[in-house]
Design a protein around this nucleic acid. Structure first.
Lengths: 144, 144
DNA sequence: TCTTAATTGGACAAAATTATCCGATTTAGG
DNA sequence: CCTAAATCGGATAATTTTGTCCAATTAAGA
């Protein structure tokens, strides 16, 4: 469904969120350890997330990544996924037709549309803060 | 969502289905022309679909592929996708956790589960015959 | 000012997916 | 028997995704 990059990205962002709530900045090393992802690859993902202003990064000896608390409750899963994988999974025709639409639909168009709308709806309604809270409470986990 | 191989596979199977209704066998060349897919790659996909008994193939000068009519109404999208892509999209954790389940779920587990159940349900309910009929009626298309 | 610890950016490598090529095999029909 | 037209199977190539390496840059603090 999501790319590996996106999976790592979502987990990373949740972990950063979690730590940001205590005011801490988190380093790449800590993140990649916490979410069990390849360090250098994770660096690339965080780099691009920083560029698209999903997370804030600061260089230097006490640098790291963080996400302001007020942003956490506004940032949705939808936006995070778009930032990493683009809108392909939300837009692309299920059978790969270049111009699949209502007037000239692929055979699974309408059925697919329903599923996809549910997915989009769910992702737009899910914000980062609630994901972080669920991990914080121990209701869900980021590894194994 | 689906791999390219799967997209081609689904379209191919629909086209074969369509032609099988008039008793015709279809050749690889015709299929790849009809669905606008790379010929040699399509050959590989059809080969594997034949091995998993989704379609029937026959060699020789008047050979080709076909799907018996009684099979068409029984064969679901779910089975076709499984045959090509495996059950990954139906089973794999949304965040890639190796053992994500009710007792130790990833942060999006429950929300994802609902979407996925809808998807599985839809695909199990969609049979090949109805897809072929919709193309036959001109209600949907396999190209552009 | 120097050291240390952090991100950044570019080049590169490995793996997976997608795609191609070609010879072998099969089968119908002249 | 021979030819034509089809699938099969194996090797290989191209592309994309995933992952690594290393030097450059930044910033705090002793």
């Amino acid at each position: 469904m999501f790319s590996k990059a996106c999976e790592y990205g979502i987990k990373a962002v949740i972990h950063i969120s979690l730590q940001s709530q205590t005011g801490k900045r988190v380093s790449l090393k800590e993140i990649s350890g916490a979410i069990d992802s390849p360090l250098a690859f994770t660096a690339k993902i965080l780099q691009s997330l920083a560029k698209s202003n999903i997370i804030e990064s600061s260089k230097g000896s006490v640098g790291g990544y963080h996400i302001p608390e007020d942003v956490q409750s506004k940032l949705t899963l939808y936006e995070i996924v778009i930032a990493i994988d683009g809108d392909n999974i939300f837009e692309r025709c299920g059978l790969g037709l270049r111009q699949c639409n209502e007037t000239s639909p692929c055979p699974i168009h309408s059925k697919f549309k329903i599923i996809r709308e549910n997915l989009i709806d769910m992702m737009k309604k899910t914000n980062l803060l609630e994901l972080a809270i669920s991990v914080d409470k121990g209701e869900s986990v980021l590894v194994i």
